Amino acid sequence: MTTFSAFRVEIPGAGEPANSHIRHLHIDQLSPGDTLIKVAFAGVNYKDALAANGQGKIIRDYPRISGIDLSGHIVSSANRQLKEGDPVVVHGFGLGVEHDGGHAQYARVSSDWVLPLPAGLSLCEAATLGAAGYTAALALHWMELCGLSPEQGEVAVTGATGGVASIAIDILNHCGYQAVAITGKHAAHDYLKKLGAARVIAVPDLEPSGPLASGQWAGAIDSVGGAVLVWLLRTTKPEGIITAFGNAGGAHLDTSVFPFILRGVKLLGINAGGPMALRREIWNKLATVYRPNHLDDICQVISLDSLPQVTKQMLERKSTGRNVIDMAL
Rank of each mutant, 00 (worst) to 15 (best):
G215N: 05
R291A: 11
M314A: 06
E84F: 00
L315V: 00
N271H: 10
V9M: 09
P308C: 07
A78M: 07
E154L: 07
L30A: 00
N293V: 04
H186A: 15
E281I: 14
M276G: 00
T128F: 14
L304H: 05
W231A: 06
R234P: 01
G264M: 06
A251P: 00
A198Q: 14
G264K: 03
D86P: 11
P12V: 07
H141Y: 15
G101I: 09
G102K: 07
E154W: 11
G163K: 03
L192S: 10
G264Q: 01
K285H: 14
G249Q: 05
G321E: 07
V265T: 12
V114Y: 03
S214F: 11
P204W: 13
V155W: 06
G249N: 00
P12H: 03
A220V: 11
G85N: 09
G225D: 02
P63K: 05
P238F: 08
A139R: 01
H174K: 15
L115C: 09
V265P: 08
Y62A: 10
H26Q: 14
D305R: 11
I11C: 04
I37W: 07
V90D: 12
G92R: 12
K193G: 08
T128H: 11
V164M: 08
A119V: 13
Q55C: 00
L195Y: 07
V109W: 09
V180D: 06
C124N: 11
V9C: 14
R64V: 07
R23W: 10
M327L: 15
Q216D: 04
A287H: 10
Q309L: 09
G43F: 07
V164W: 02
D297G: 00
H186W: 01
Y106A: 00
D296M: 10
V224M: 06
I325V: 15
L123W: 01
A119Q: 14
T35A: 03
L192I: 05
R199C: 08
L25G: 03
V9I: 13
V257Y: 11
A198L: 08
V75T: 10
V39E: 04
K237Q: 12
S214T: 15
V90Q: 03
T3V: 15
S77P: 03
H186E: 15
Q105C: 03
I270F: 14
I37E: 09
A213D: 12
A160W: 02
I261K: 01
A156K: 03
P292M: 03
D170N: 07
H99M: 06
D86Y: 09
Q29Y: 11
E125D: 12
I182S: 02
I11M: 14
A187R: 12
G54F: 06
T255D: 04
L233C: 04
V44H: 03
